[in-house]
Design a protein around this nucleic acid. Structure first.
Lengths: 151, 151
DNA sequence: CTTGAAAAGAACTGCCT
DNA sequence: AGGCAGTTCTTTTCAAG
């Protein structure tokens, strides 16, 4: 497990807020030189503190105004059923995230759609027809807030 | 609403997979020159296609091995109750995401903890003591897969 | 849209304290 | 570990076809 000191923590938090900041700019905030800051960031990267760098899309601006979290309970749950379900769900373009979970449901899916009529189409023709689907619960997202996290 | 042509779509998808690629490298894949690729990316940025650039942390490597999605149903739901609940939930370090949702629950929370005993502590001392909490449902995340999305 | 090039800035390196 | 100075790379901008 990776241990971070105070300065590392501040660097990581600053990068979580805005990943476009340069090592020089970050260092100035903390009273560190550019190379010192860069070396710390490199050490953190090499230690695997950061996940793969991705861009996240502004889906609203692209016409996807509706986000729904679905809980899915499978009717049949053999090894084959799980693999069949996962393969089929990966083929649905509107599904953004697949979580295999423990609890009242077997899977949680993050699904986007253009609007509610479009979501109904996705739900009826894509989700409900998935192999082995039992119960489905839906939560339409009204707003989402990302917090600093546990550091 | 922003319209993308085929090349834009390929650029966006490539950046979703790996945001560290340079404009030159991206252009080479698509048979475009570096300036042409750069201009397209700039146009997309200015159009607001991309959300704020953040880094995502490898929480497992930092000692947070457990991720749980909680559904929370409030017992009392006036305007004040929602604001009180949101303010209190924002103060819990282990809460990563707060979603206000429509459906069987009022909120969905993404919570991380070091392990299951640690999660029990968070649940009993932080979550269950939130103002106005009624029913709580938990799904422990076993695995999570991010898909390309609806483009 | 392309190629070529130049300027600015950020990333990286070696050496020193 | 951090700072300084310098090199290399990418980004960013421009000129010309």
């Amino acid at each position: 497990m990776i241990e971070l000191d105070d300065i590392d923590r501040q660097l990581v938090l600053a990068l979580c807020k805005d990943a476009t900041q340069s090592a020089g700019a970050l260092g100035r905030e903390l009273g560190l030189s550019q190379p010192a800051t860069w070396r710390r960031i490199k050490r953190l990267k090499d230690a695997g503190v950061f996940g793969p760098r991705r861009v996240d899309l502004n889906l609203e601006a692209l016409g996807f105004g509706v986000t729904v979290f679905l809980g899915v309970k499978l009717a049949t749950k053999g090894r084959v059923s799980l693999e069949d379900f996962e393969r089929a769900v990966r083929a649905i373009p509107e599904v953004q995230t697949v979580q295999h979970v423990l609890g009242l449901f077997d899977y949680r899916l993050r699904v986007v759609a253009q609007d509610l009529p479009d979501f109904e189409r996705v739900l009826r023709r894509r989700i409900m027809t998935l192999p082995g689907v039992g119960n489905v619960e839906a939560n339409v997202v009204l707003s989402e807030e990302l917090l600093p996290g546990p550091l």
